[in-house]
């Protein structure tokens, strides 16, 4: 159990009728790793991720998340993971504090812990003046940071981020990645999808999905070496072109 990878995927497949959205993919993610899950829109990365977080059932294949089988132990999986989606993950008509209390509450955190956590989070993000402001009134970058912190409230072992920095300015993206690194250094496994190729460079390893298959999986440096290009962007383009 101890040396189990955080995520272990074997021949995971998802079919919608005749269409194969995810075609027998296999990979492992180690504990504390920042794993970039890349792919063009429609490549199947969201579908694959949905199977890992337990809201979509695999057609065939196996996946173990935090040591639990996603088919048979969905509840345990849910308690061990955090999730932040590309659509915004907080309630706009609730204040920051209320969002924290709500999301902490559905993970069963006791009141005293919630209070502590709220204070810590507000301190960390420097939101003292805004803790009682409706989330609606905050700039997008702040919302994203709060959403990330909220997804971490219950101390998940793995956190899934589905295009977390969509539409955010470069400075905020930078800050966001600093938060990601901080969590990774604490041992939290990060599974992140993105289509910003500069962000792919920040990952420990990346996988690139094309049409339901994982076409490449390695560290950014090795991938650049293998395809003899200078940036992840070019790696991505090369792979996508090969298929066409």
């Amino acid at each position: 159990m101890k040396n189990d990878p955080a995520i272990h995927v074997e021949n995971l497949t998802k079919m919608f009728g005749d269409f194969t959205a995810v075609n027998s993919i296999s990979f492992q993610v180690g504990k504390g790793e920042v794993f970039g899950f890349l792919g063009a829109n429609g490549a199947g990365k969201t579908t694959a991720m949905k199977m890992l977080i337990g809201i979509s059932k695999p057609t065939s294949g196996q996946a173990r998340v935090a040591g639990f089988n996603v088919r048979t132990h969905a509840e345990e999986v849910k308690n061990s993971i955090g999730y932040m989606s590309q659509k915004f993950s907080l309630y706009n008509d609730l204040t920051i504090k209320e969002n924290i209390v709500f999301f902490g509450g559905i993970y069963g955190l006791p009141k005293s812990v919630l209070k502590e956590k709220t204070q810590a989070l507000v301190d960390e993000l420097g939101l003292h003046d805004h803790a009682d402001a409706l989330v609606r009134s905050l700039p997008l970058g702040w919302k994203q940071k709060v959403a990330f912190s909220v997804a971490l409230l219950h101390n998940p072992k793995i956190i899934f981020l589905d295009e977390p920095t969509g539409g955010v300015d470069p400075i905020t993206r930078r800050q966001f990645w600093e938060m990601i690194y901080r969590e990774a250094s604490k041992g939290v496994t990060i599974f992140v999808t993105t289509h910003y190729m500069d962000e792919a460079e920040y990952c420990d390893r990346v996988s690139i999905m094309v049409e339901g298959n994982i076409e490449a999986l390695d560290t950014p440096n090795k991938l650049k070496e293998r395809y003899q290009v200078g940036s992840m962007n070019e790696v991505f383009l090369k792979l996508a072109r090969n298929i066409e």
Partner: peptide, 13 residues
């Protein structure tokens, strides 16, 4: 529509 349903379904609820 807001995407919060997904978050709720991923939670232990």
């Amino acid at each position: 529509e807001m995407g919060t349903m997904e978050i709720l379904l991923v939670s232990p609820l």
